[in-house]
Design a binder for these strands. Structure first.
Length: 328
DNA sequence: AACCTCCGCAACCGCTTATTT
DNA sequence: TAAATAAGCGGTTGCGGAGGT
């Protein structure tokens, strides 16, 4: 089938986003929620293609994103998941709350891969650099490969469990009650590679304050604060040139997220009144230590076979492995 | 201080998959 | 059922900062 260009090549702006563009996009998403990206450029007047808008939102503007400073546990998790899943960054990122696939991918390419290569002569310290046993051949569609993985989930779980076992004295622990909220209005923005992953990631996060759970409100007040930040003129691109946000660092306080732009801060917070939408499956983060994700995964791993064969109806952690549906 | 090289990351590109008509 | 379209994903690139000489 003929595929039209995703967007007009003429008149489409490229390159770094400006604060103004960010504001326009955030404001639009505040009103309409993420999705229908095709309509975003026309409705907002942004001279960007829909893809660019989506990417900007998912990788940068979306609340709940944490940037930089990967913890050791995150590193290990990425390494092991990469060994298990291959370069399926969206799937891997879905196990890391607050991390985008782009972030994970970049971190892998710039840090972890090199570290692994340095760590062992063959460039394969713990096997992560090898093509994973379950990695689909390029010609396979993702669906096909998912099914393969599903049929082989026992092996996969065992591999992951073994991979994670050396992580230390972490022990399986009871999981918080599952959160029914799963997709929200902003469905499938990030890491939607499998419902499993999304669900697990939500399970992995500390339970936020109920009012904040998956809720994102950008009030007019907040927008003005954001503008204040942008107007500061001292903003840098990761401490550098003006013109682009220095990184919309998000830090959650449990009931709100702060999106920092240089010197300014826009608070993305639940608020009474005003549009509200659930932005996606990854809830805002609590002060981040990545304790829950590992615990959840471990719990899932150690819980192991007891849940096979069981019809999965709830949003429990087991939903994280819809493969269970297919297990014999 | 100037230049060069390396590194990190945001964004783009092209392909695949999912959904709609 | 097929075509058209939208969305998602992963690989790659280019820019700007940091550090070294």
């Amino acid at each position: 089938m003929a595929r039209p260009p995703c967007c007009d090549k003429e008149g489409v702006k490229k390159g770094p986003w400006t604060p103004e563009e960010d504001l326009v996009l955030v404001s639009y998403i505040q009103d309409h929620g993420p999705g229908n990206w095709r309509a975003v450029p026309t409705r907002t007047g942004l001279m960007r293609c829909s893809k660019s808008c989506r990417l900007r939102w998912t990788n940068y503007l979306r609340p709940g994103i944490r940037r930089g400073n990967f913890t050791e546990q995150e590193e290990k998790l990425i390494v092991h998941l990469q060994a298990l899943l291959g370069n399926r960054w969206a799937a891997i990122a879905s196990y890391l709350p607050e991390r985008t696939d782009n972030d994970v991918k970049n971190y892998w390419n710039t840090h972890l891969k090199r570290k692994l290569q340095a760590g062992s002569g063959d460039g394969d310290g713990d096997g992560a650099a090898k093509p994973p046993a379950h990695r689909p051949p390029p010609s396979n569609s993702k669906g096909q490969w998912e099914r393969r993985l599903q049929t082989d989930i026992n092996l996969a779980r065992r591999a992951l469990r073994e991979a994670l076992t050396p992580l230390g004295d972490l022990k399986p622990q009871p999981q918080p009650q599952p959160q029914p909220q799963r997709d929200g209005a902003g469905v499938g923005i990030v890491g939607g590679d499998s419902p499993a992953a999304s669900s697990l990631s939500s399970q992995c996060s500390p339970p936020p304050a109920p009012a904040a759970l998956g809720t994102y409100v950008l009030t007019a007040d907040n927008v003005s604060r954001m503008l204040d930040g942008w107007a500061g003129l001292n903003w840098k691109r990761r401490g550098g040139a003006p013109g682009t946000p220095g990184g919309a660092e998000t830090a959650s306080t449990g009931s709100s997220s702060e999106v920092s732009y240089g010197g300014g801060t826009a608070v993305v917070a639940p608020a009474a009144g005003g549009p509200v939408f659930e932005y996606e499956t990854k809830p805002p983060a609590a002060p981040f230590q990545l304790m829950m994700p590992l615990s959840a995964i471990e719990s899932w791993l150690f819980d192991d076979d007891t849940h096979f064969h069981r019809p999965v109806q709830s949003a429990s952690l087991l939903d994280a492995a819809p493969m269970d549906y297919y297990l014999l």
